[in-house]
Design a protein around this nucleic acid. Structure first.
Length: 210
DNA sequence: ATCCCGAGGG
DNA sequence: CCCTCTGGAT
């Protein structure tokens, strides 16, 4: 996609949703971190159903450690990969208390040192909580970047770097959420809704059937 | 490359 | 039945 087309692409997403934000429910940086860890290979809707119960029982890292793996698992059983996620949630909470006074660290290295936190989760926290201009490339953004021709790449790191190079600076801070939301509701994996897409004319794909 | 792993949609 | 959902660790 050409430079001016990319600018127009984000201009339209901005007009449609001037202040995009995550649909994950959370009441603190700690809760956002946990919610993102739980969101791997799961829908936001199912994560929110689980975290409502989980955060009511354990709103802080101290309470999460007390609740324990089995206790956490009991609240998140309806999410896929729940055993790994329960283990990581407790271990991560323990590490936050030991190394960071129970606070969420603002650096990539410290975040990725936490169990269950990889590059994508760290980028979500850095962007959403600390408002840093980074790109968390998840399943939606990877698909959309390649399908539209916005920022093609073989793997997620290649797409991340392509986006950082190509997204205009003034849109970079919110680009993550615009792309996620567009991928979730319009540019879906199966049968994308090209008929109701505001950037269809800029897209490489342009579904023939819609 | 493989495993983890429930719910919802088609 | 199949695929997908804001991945990470081994």
């Amino acid at each position: 996609m050409k430079r001016e087309a990319i600018r127009e692409f984000f201009r339209r997403l901005h007009d449609a949703d001037p202040e995009p934000k995550t649909e994950l429910e959370y009441a603190s940086p700690y809760q956002l971190l946990v919610a993102v860890v739980l969101s791997a290979q799961a829908t936001d809707r199912s994560v929110n159903l689980a975290t409502r119960k989980l955060f009511a029982a354990a709103p802080t890292p101290e309470a999460m450690v007390s609740l324990g793996e089995d206790g956490v698992a009991g609240h998140i059983r309806t999410i896929g990969l729940f055993r790994n996620k329960a283990r990581n949630t407790v271990a991560l909470s323990r590490l936050l208390l030991e190394r960071h006074g129970g606070e969420v660290p603002a650096g990539r290295e410290a975040l990725e040192a936490l169990p269950g936190v990889g590059r994508k989760t760290a980028n979500v926290v850095l962007n959403t909580i600390f408002r840093q201009p980074v790109m968390a490339v998840d399943t939606h953004i990877f698909r959309l970047a390649n399908r539209t021709g916005l920022a093609p790449g073989k793997d997620v790191v290649a797409v991340e770097n392509a986006l950082l190079r190509r997204v205009p600076k003034e849109y970079l801070l919110d680009a993550h959420h615009w792309l996620i939301l567009h991928g979730r509701y319009v540019c879906t994996a199966h049968k994308p809704k090209c008929g109701e897409c505001c950037v269809r004319d800029l897209c490489l794909y342009r579904d023939k059937t819609a």
